[in-house]
Design a protein around this nucleic acid. Structure first.
Length: 406
DNA sequence: TCTGGGGTCCTAGGACCC
DNA sequence: TCTGGGGTCCTAGGACCC
């Protein structure tokens, strides 16, 4: 408890590094992995970064910064496979692995020191194993709290290790800009700077009540902990039957902004089907359905509705978001994006679905199950609601599963 | 052709209940 | 007659992470 060395392992430019394994001829060229059209950069190799290219930059700006940049499409199947192997390597070091995403994880190595040596030695072992086995590099932060390990790995990039022992925390952290802290983003950084908190040391030497008055009870206390590296040390490993996710959602940006209700309702159906399918695959149901709408000017609103009973039924989710959409009363406003999310998820086994004799509603569950079976056999492209197959035309529930009317 | 898609957590107000 | 206070649920928005 008092001595829990943590490793934060972070792949360097993960998607780009994996993509470049297939294209070694491009390693010295500026390369980004990203979508086409209205997409953004998912990863940029270090050559591209010399042009100022960063993750999340719009592709249009990337081409302006570096006209000869090579753009590779993301291959999520390969990313997922490589990630699984890397995580497996982590678990050979310690079972206490908290995966943060495909390309990064925290490792609690307190139980591994006896077997494998001090934390920095474990870090180097991991780095050479991943390099040899996967052909990609990673960086490791070694520290005694989550946020310090995270900041350390960032400063170790690329292809390095940074160790911050407990006695070194203040020397390491306090000169840094507040924006370097894990959990302080652009907005909070600006807020802090405007209030004359520029370095981490500035925060550290301010009493907690003062910070709480200025930034809220929770954020104020949290900032103080971050500034002293006294945030959490216990990891949450995802081993075994982990608790279900709290929400599942899907959203999509239109290729072109649209105000056409038919197109929007059709898109909501696609998204509802995607979310419903994932919920059923995970065995969860949820009661709160949320619609997300982003307008042309990028302002974004959400509207949610809590159903009397939890559901995983595509048609019920779709009906709820369509009602929320219609209640907005939009006329000419063009939409850039719509999204569907279901929150408050619980295992399906935990809720007793109300059985109402003669209620037609529940026939949709069978229809969903049929779709799920077909999807498993033939792939998602093969099975879709009828109103999505026809390019245009009316969209109503009776069209969605022709021949399977309850 | 500026700005993706998947999440988590926090805040704050109002309803409602005790 | 100046009128409390806590807990929970619902809704909307916002910040942050990768």
């Amino acid at each position: 408890m008092t001595d829990t060395p943590l490793l934060h392992v972070d792949m360097d430019a993960f998607y780009a590094s994996v993509a470049l394994r297939e294209r070694p001829d491009l390693v010295d060229e500026p390369v980004v992995v990203g979508g086409s059209g209205r997409g953004v950069v998912l990863a940029a190799n270090y050559v591209a970064r010399r042009y100022g290219i960063r993750s999340a930059l719009p592709m249009a700006r990337v081409r302006r910064l570096c006209p000869h940049v090579v753009v590779l499409p993301p291959d999520y199947d390969t990313f997922t496979t490589v990630s699984a192997s890397v995580m497996e390597t982590f678990r050979e070091v310690t079972p206490l692995v908290e995966a943060m995403s495909l390309d990064e994880a925290f490792l609690d190595v307190r139980g591994s020191v006896r077997r494998l040596g001090p934390p920095e030695q474990i870090a180097e072992q991991l780095r050479s194993r991943i390099h040899d086995e996967q052909g990609i590099t990673c960086s490791v932060g070694v520290a005694w709290s989550v946020s310090v390990a995270k900041v350390a790995s960032r400063r170790a990039k690329p292809d390095g290790v940074v160790v911050v022992r407990p006695a070194e925390v203040t020397t390491f952290l306090h000169p840094l800009d507040v924006g370097e802290l894990y959990g302080v983003g652009e907005k909070t950084r600006t807020l802090l700077h405007r209030a004359s908190y520029v370095t981490v040391g500035d925060l550290a030497h301010t009493p907690v009540p003062t910070l709480q008055r200025a930034f809220g009870r929770h954020l104020g206390a949290h900032l103080h902990q971050l500034a002293w590296g006294t945030d959490r040390t216990e990891l949450v490993p995802q081993a075994g039957p982990h608790e279900p996710e709290r929400s599942m959602g899907a959203d999509e940006t239109f290729a072109r902004d649209t105000a056409d209700r038919e197109a929007i309702v059709r898109e909501l159906l696609r998204l509802s089907a995607r979310v419903g399918g994932r919920m059923r695959a995970a065995g969860v149901v949820g009661r709160t359905v949320t619609l997300k709408v982003r307008f042309s000017d990028f302002t974004t609103i959400t509207r949610s509705h809590t159903l009397p009973e939890a559901t995983d039924v595509t048609v019920e989710v779709h009906r709820a978001v369509t009602r929320l959409y219609d209640a907005l009363g939009l006329r000419r406003e063009r939409l850039r994006l719509v999204g569907v999310r279901v929150e408050g998820l619980v295992p399906r086994t935990a809720v007793q679905r109300q059985l109402v004799l003669g209620e037609p509603e529940h026939g949709w569950e069978e229809a969903d199950r049929a779709v799920d079976r077909a999807t498993r056999r033939f792939g998602s492209a093969a099975v879709r609601p009828a109103s999505l197959v026809r390019g245009r035309g009316r969209t109503n529930e009776s069209e969605i599963f022709p021949g399977r009317l309850p």
